[in-house]
């Protein structure tokens, strides 16, 4: 089922002629590099002096780590990198744990012991994803204000849990659905309790799927900006808000902003690269299987 490890099939649609095939391979390389170029340039700029970055684009320069040092330094009265990183870390971690605690039993129930109308329940979860955030942002802001939660990590933990829950139920269900029913029945016949079935039979099979789902929740929560800026403009701000604050209204900031962007993006991009196959499968096939 893995998308990229399938056995070679008949000829692809494009490129049946050898020359054409080589040209297409070359074209794919060119487009791939072109797509990646802005990010490559961002990393380069992070290693430049401000005066070099704020000039006509150049590839030749003396790389320096100064910008990374500057943006991570704490300035009194301003949101520091360490603070924002700490806030993001805890908010992302706790909301992802909550998502998994809520989603695993639900997905398990939907996949392994289907009941009447399970499809309606699944669709309800997905449909909440179709509700635009602007449809609920005002009451949420009012409720958060009245509960004195504006500018706290708590409000973001709750909202990120709600934001990722439908996707997690959706993806996990497809992973649970792949556990062979015979295995579970065999465990039941052997007198295995529900918890025992979960731990000994089901978890080992779905563990990679659980990891991929959790990772996707981490990525979405880490990158989220709208709630963070609307509900937490000061106080418990997260990494995207910190990056946004690196845009200065005077002086040169381009190289510093690039260094900040690299720091903000790197954790999630590296994690995404490491788990890409399973994540892709979860995202693309989760909707179909």
């Amino acid at each position: 089922m893995a998308i990229f490890t399938r056995a070679p099939k008949a000829e692809p649609i494009l490129g049946q002629n050898r020359l054409v095939a080589n040209l297409l391979g070359l074209l794919t390389w060119f487009i791939g590099l072109l797509f990646f170029f802005p990010l490559f340039w961002l990393v380069l700029n992070g290693f430049k002096e401000e005066s070099v970055a704020n000039a006509s684009p150049t590839l030749i320069f003396d790389p320096t780590l100064d910008r990374f040092r500057e943006v991570t330094e704490a300035n009194a009265g301003l949101l520091s990198f360490a603070e924002a990183f700490g806030n993001s870390f805890w908010i992302v971690l706790i909301s992802t744990i909550f998502v998994m605690i809520l989603a695993v039993p639900a997905a398990y129930a939907l996949a392994i012991r289907p009941m009447r109308k399970w499809r309606d329940v699944l669709f309800f979860f997905i449909s909440t994803k179709f509700l635009p955030i602007v449809g609920i942002i005002m009451p949420i802001w009012i409720i958060a204000r009245d509960l004195n939660l504006l500018g706290t990590r708590t409000v973001l933990v709750v909202l990120y849990t709600a934001m990722n829950l439908p996707l997690a139920v959706w993806m996990l269900r497809s992973f649970f659905a792949e556990v062979p029913k015979e295995l579970i029945e065999a465990a039941q016949i052997d007198g295995c309790s529900l918890l025992g079935q979960l731990r000994q039979v089901i978890l080992p099979i779905v563990a990679p799927g659980l990891a991929a789902t959790a990772l996707l929740c981490v990525i979405f929560a880490w990158n989220e900006f709208f709630f963070a800026i609307q509900l937490n403009p000061t106080g418990a701000s997260t990494i995207p808000v910190w990056v946004n604050s690196q845009q200065k209204f005077q002086g040169q900031f381009l190289a510093g902003l690039s260094a900040a962007s690299v720091l903000a993006t790197l954790p999630v991009v590296v994690a995404g690269w490491a788990a890409q196959k399973r994540m892709i499968r979860g995202l693309a096939m989760g909707a179909i299987k």
Binding site: G32, F35, N223, N244, S261, A264
Partner: peptide
């Protein structure tokens, strides 16, 4: 390389 843009923080 091609999937990377999807992982990048929208603000960035």
């Amino acid at each position: 390389l091609l999937i990377t843009p999807f992982l990048v923080m929208p603000v960035v």
